[in-house]
Nucleic acid binder design. Structure first.
Lengths: 357, 357
DNA sequence: TTGTATGCGTTATCAC
DNA sequence: GTGATAACGCATACAA
């Protein structure tokens, strides 16, 4: 009765080979389902698989990667995992990667450029075969990411348009979203509409504003500059809320009447709701408020927040499909032109907007 | 002028050895900062490091792991990354791991047991050296995790007490939290207090309720069973909100007066706020509402939610320190008794509670 | 203090 | 259809 080695006897391919009576090569071919396995007799395969199972064989991923030069991993670099915007993009990425051979390796940069660089480095060291960067804000990393292009590393950025740097990008159509937001308030009958624009540094801000202006000009709506405010540039992720509170209070103090407010994003909108409450007002009775993003909070706040939804999961999914495409086409070494893909936003109607009384 | 190989010429240790004039082993010792490197001449080290730098040498992590039997990774298995509860625990884990040699490998089970098992498997395959499981809810995986114990894999579960299965656990002191919540309302002068308990399957629910009862008996407060409701067992993460809405509406319809409400968690509390609003009431004017957890939403909703805070980042950090300790002590093969560590909750006073009018 | 030799577990290339 | 052999890049025991 042979005793099992206590030292967590690692079962290797050679063990399976010995036990099954075939050579390590054959065993490898069968168990890794290499192309050659097509020519292996069904019986042989069966026997090998059985013994592998019986012995509890687990391939050593390090040996395999070392030899095959494939890590079967895709790096996912996120700017802040606590940003609800990121989370659903991650869901999309993960669901899309799930049925494939690739495993996502997730890193969180915590809003810090230094961390970003470090984790980018770490991911390269781990030999990820592609990279997805989720960045919904400030992001002028030409340098670090440009380096990847030279290494032919498939790369897609989601949440930010960097197509001008010839980096594949997936974002929501911010311009259309801005247009829709303004349109919604207009169709509810609002004519005196305030706007809290996003930080100047964010390209999103400008695009959404462009959309609002386009709507205004198409419909002959006048957007009084005195009702337009802008969030300051800052790195604090929660600043949208504080900014929303402050700027809305400013607007209220200005004594300039407004029955509707387009906020840069949901956090800002929640800030506006707070400011209204603080001054004895409420949404939507005294002022309709519309946000942007449709983060989970939007549905849970009271009143439920009407907002322009970004299809976040779809964005993650699309970005993932893009890198997967590149990886597949790598064999044919076909070059894919990096470009921008815009996904359509959609209006989510809740209770923070209503017809003016 | 020698041309660089176009085939992404991988720089290996041998290249560095050749170029610097030392042997591969010396180079290895120096660059991996092995114990022996203490005996290597400073000059030698310097030269080796210089040439490595110059050549752009990056160690091959697969070769290194294969040889050294160390992956330098720690698996982190989360039940749902979109649960704000998880996110800050992750932050704590990451920050604690940051200065170490270990890299977290994060997997998200999406609330599904099947995924949980699969990712657990994947993490083992990746040869993580320890495992941290973040599970704030339903979690009776005795089987899968028990297996890890046999493999001597360091393991800590955070958010759930499984110390009875001899698995290291880190949670908030739910009993104390329940006590504090009730105490807060009592001290504000509330005597007719409703409670929405958590799902029966969650051990948290019972503990928090125990704490409330302990306070009630200590202070001679009567908790009328007719004012006590309980969320149903369900897997839907958002159900706390819907449940909060429904049960609060029930309470209101029951016509039994209550001036304060202790909700199981923040989502439930937000549901209660919504229900109050729907019936023309509001917090805290008509009813004080207190939550539990202090997720980010709590600060952003209007009114800001008074709540019992879980020190989530600290919980993640503590769990991480525990597995790191075990990893370090592994050398001395010292056995660490798996046990439960409770962290104290704290009251966060915002605007959803007030003295009864 | 540094160099030599060997093997970690796998896959690729060839030969049969 | 299957097997022998040689790497992949690194770290370590041992020799010097």
């Amino acid at each position: 009765m042979p005793e099992r080695k206590s030292k967590s006897a690692r079962v290797t391919l050679v063990d399976v080979a010995r036990k099954s009576g075939f050579s390590p090569s054959t065993v490898s071919i069968v168990l890794s389902e290499a192309p050659l396995s097509r020519y292996v007799a069904a019986q042989t395969k069966e026997r090998i698989r059985k013994t592998a199972q019986a012995l509890g064989y687990r391939p050593d991923i390090f040996a395999r990667s070392l030899r095959s030069r494939h890590s079967n991993t895709i790096g996912v670099l996120v700017f802040d995992i606590s940003d609800p915007f990121c989370v659903f993009i991650l869901k999309g990425i993960e669901k899309t990667l799930h049925p494939t051979q690739y495993l996502p390796i997730l890193m969180d940069a915590h809003h810090e450029r230094k961390q970003f660089e470090r984790y980018l480095d770490l991911l390269m060291e781990r030999r990820v075969e592609a990279l997805i960067v989720v960045a919904n804000w400030l992001f002028d990393e030409g340098k670090s990411l440009a380096g990847l292009r030279e290494k032919k590393m498939p790369l897609v950025v989601v949440g930010q348009d960097v197509s001008k740097k010839h980096i594949g990008s997936v974002t929501v159509d911010n311009e259309a979203g801005g247009y829709e937001a303004m349109k919604h308030l207009y169709e509810f009958g609002h004519r005196q509409i305030a706007v809290i624009r996003g930080p100047a540094k964010l390209s999103d801000s400008q695009l959404r504003w462009d959309g609002m202006q386009r709507f205004a000009s198409e419909y002959g709506l006048r957007l009084d500059p005195r009702r337009i405010r802008q969030l300051s540039d800052t790195l604090d992720p929660i600043s949208g809320f504080e900014g929303g509170v402050q700027l809305t209070e400013e607007l209220i103090r200005s004594r300039l009447k407004f029955t509707g407010l387009v906020a840069f994003d949901d956090l800002t909108a929640l800030g506006a709701v707070r400011a209204l409450a603080r001054t004895g007002r409420s949404a939507p009775q005294d002022c309709s408020v519309i946000g942007f993003d449709d983060v989970p909070l939007a549905a849970l706040s009271t009143p439920g927040l009407t907002t322009i939804r970004q299809p976040m999961e779809e964005m993650g999914s699309l970005a993932t499909r893009r890198v997967l495409d590149v990886l597949r086409e790598a064999d044919e070494s076909r070059e894919v032109t990096p470009d921008l893909q815009l996904l359509p936003p959609s209006l989510v109607l809740r209770d923070s907007t209503a017809r003016p009384s």
